[in-house]
């Protein structure tokens, strides 16, 4: 999504000559602005407004100022899910990036059947998070599931992966990886395909083995793309809800309660509208800050690479463009 800005900047380089009688620019952007206003400014404004009140969906509705914020920020029930969502994101990202990259590198070295493999590996992406989670829940069922049965036949003890507080969250991260690694694969495979050929040929002539070529050429050249993929996946993981909703409902205990799950429960089960809105507003701010920091870091890193100038870095951006 960081790419959105760059795409537009690049696009600006070749504007049309526009005459006086031509359709004014605002006529083209007005529908988008109207829809964006209706779907962001209206609900978020309403959410912020409600966060200053005490409302239980019913008759109780009174202004409490910043009281909700004070309660939320000092509540362990708010920070627990934030930490959980963050560690889920870290685990899922680690598995997805390693699996997606390994698969992209492996498929890159195949000569046949690549079209079919791409179709195959996007299949999990075609599924709803609900289907992914309830099907895996059944497969992992400690007494009747096929996975524990299989593990027992391998001589391993069958663990109740989703029912154990210490394994439930990593298991959800694994489900997310099963679901989304295909996305990482598709992007990184396309990235590998568009890498410049010359440095690799030169390295091979110089006698560099596969691993050193990977370490000193492929990985550094792919790094900008890997960062973008990681950012997109991270944004998605921060919104974690459907896997939790389908597989564990936040349990056992609160072991898998993500922030969105907590907000959902607070609003619809606890009927504490204002508390739920406050959490979500604060969380949205956190996500914005994280993304702004990440974009800033990227700009600094980009400037440094730009100053370093020649060689593989500039080759990479040319290859991907």
């Amino acid at each position: 999504m960081t790419t959105l800005a760059e795409t537009a900047v690049l696009a600006a380089e070749r504007p049309h000559p526009s005459s006086q009688s031509d359709t004014p620019t605002w006529r083209f952007t007005a529908p988008l602005v109207a829809v964006l206003a209706a779907t962001t400014v209206v609900p978020i404004g309403y959410a912020v407004y409600l966060s200053f009140f005490d409302w239980n969906w019913g008759s109780r509705f009174r202004f409490v100022g910043l009281h909700n914020y004070a309660v939320t920020l000092t509540n362990a029930e708010f920070w627990g899910p934030i930490g959980r969502t963050a560690s889920f994101t870290a685990m899922a990202l680690a598995i997805e990036l390693v699996a997606g990259l390994a698969l992209a590198l492996a498929v890159d070295r195949l000569t046949r059947g690549i079209g079919w493999l791409r179709t195959l590996f996007i299949l999990p992406l075609m599924m709803s998070g609900i289907v992914v989670s309830i099907v895996w829940k059944v497969m992992l069922d400690p007494t009747l599931g096929v996975v524990p049965w299989f593990l027992q036949h391998l001589g391993l003890s069958a663990v109740n992966l989703l029912g154990n507080p210490s394994t439930a969250l990593p298991t959800l991260a694994f489900l997310d990886a099963w679901w989304q690694s295909g996305f990482v694969f598709i992007i990184l495979y396309a990235g590998i395909q568009s890498l410049p050929k010359e440095p690799f040929e030169a390295a091979e002539v110089d006698g560099a083995g596969y691993w050193s070529r990977f370490r000193y050429l492929t990985l550094p050249l792919l790094l900008p793309l890997i960062a973008v993929v990681a950012a997109v996946r991270a944004v998605d993981c921060f919104k974690l809800f459907d896997l939790v909703f389908g597989a564990t409902n936040g349990g056992p205990g609160t072991a898998t309660q993500s922030l969105q799950m907590l907000a959902y429960r607070t609003a619809f089960k606890g009927h504490q509208m204002s508390a739920s809105m406050t959490m979500l507003v604060v969380y949205t701010l956190f996500v914005m800050i994280a993304v702004t920091v990440a974009l800033g870091l990227r700009r600094v890193a980009g400037r440094r690479a730009g100053a370093g100038g020649a060689g593989p870095q500039s080759g990479a951006s040319a290859g991907e463009a």
Binding site: L4, A263, M277
Partner: peptide
Amino acid sequence: QPLIVWLLVAYLVPDFVVAIP
């Protein structure tokens, strides 16, 4: 630029901050 930032923000927002209002 503001329009692009707006689109980015729309994409980042957690679903329920839109859905519950």
